[in-house]
């Protein structure tokens, strides 16, 4: 291979004048995390509402939940981001569209909302499955005690369902982190974007990608470790899942 390795490159100043190349990548990592967390909050909120809708006895609620999930699941995330970023402002009334286009941080908000809604469909599916996996008698017992449907979900079904789906939620959160990289296409300079920028400035393509790869791996390790800790913390003494 006639590729010229230069691992010192990370400590050389980058041409944007914002410190070294390493600083550049770290700022990308920070933006990746910030975007992923914002998107995750959106995914959890919307996913929970839709997930609950899918388990209600009402046919209409179930149908709404089904349509929501199918809508977000059957289009590539990239296309969805384009719809939010390029198409939505044009379809809105002129003033609102203009405001959207001139919004500072538009790529960040578009990515957070776009990835968040995309992931919310998957959270909804997980939560609905978690609720459905609880014994039917749990809901009946809560109902028989006089709890309303809302109270039954709030105090009985959801606390158990969230515990059960904690492992799949961990991978969905990691998917959220990974999916923020798609936002490079709407101009979000997150970790992958910064690695790409570094490659273009310095021509040290493999060093740049290696560093980004290591950072993604670290994020994975931190999240998985953190979630294991959380799983242990909320585990119920004596309770074995699936029993």
């Amino acid at each position: 291979m006639n590729y010229h390795w230069n691992w010192q490159i990370f400590f050389e100043p980058n041409p944007t004048g914002s410190g070294t190349y390493l600083d550049m990548l770290l700022s990308g990592l920070a933006l990746t995390i910030k975007t992923a967390l914002t998107a995750w909050i959106i995914a959890l909120v919307f996913g929970s509402v839709v997930g609950v809708l899918r388990t209600l006895p009402s046919k209409v609620a179930g149908w709404i939940g089904f349509c929501y999930v199918e809508f977000f699941r059957n289009m590539p995330l990239l296309v969805q981001l384009f719809l939010w970023f390029f198409v939505l402002p044009e379809l809105l009334p002129r003033a609102a569209g203009l405001w959207l286009k001139q919004m500072p941080n538009a790529p960040f908000w578009t990515a957070s909302i776009g990835v968040g809604l995309f992931m919310s469909a998957r959270v909804a599916v997980q939560l609905a499955a978690g609720i459905a996996s609880l014994p039917r008698g749990q809901k009946q017992a809560a109902t028989a005690l006089g709890l309303t449907t809302a109270q039954t979900y709030r105090y009985v079904l959801l606390p158990m369902a969230y515990r059960i789906i904690l492992p799949p939620l961990t991978s969905e959160f990691l998917n959220t982190v990974k999916n923020t990289a798609v936002a490079i296409t709407i101009g979000l300079i997150e970790l992958t974007g910064q690695a790409r920028a570094m490659q273009e400035f310095s021509f040290q393509v493999f060093e740049a990608f290696t560093a980004a790869t290591i950072m993604y791996l670290l994020v994975n390790i931190v999240v998985v470790t953190g979630m294991r800790f959380l799983e242990r913390k909320v585990a119920i003494p004596g309770y074995i899942a699936g029993k």
Partner: peptide, 13 residues
């Protein structure tokens, strides 16, 4: 653990 976009760039180069 890696975003597909990053993997695409990796292999491309």
């Amino acid at each position: 653990s890696l975003p597909l976009v990053l993997v695409i760039f990796w292999f491309y180069f």
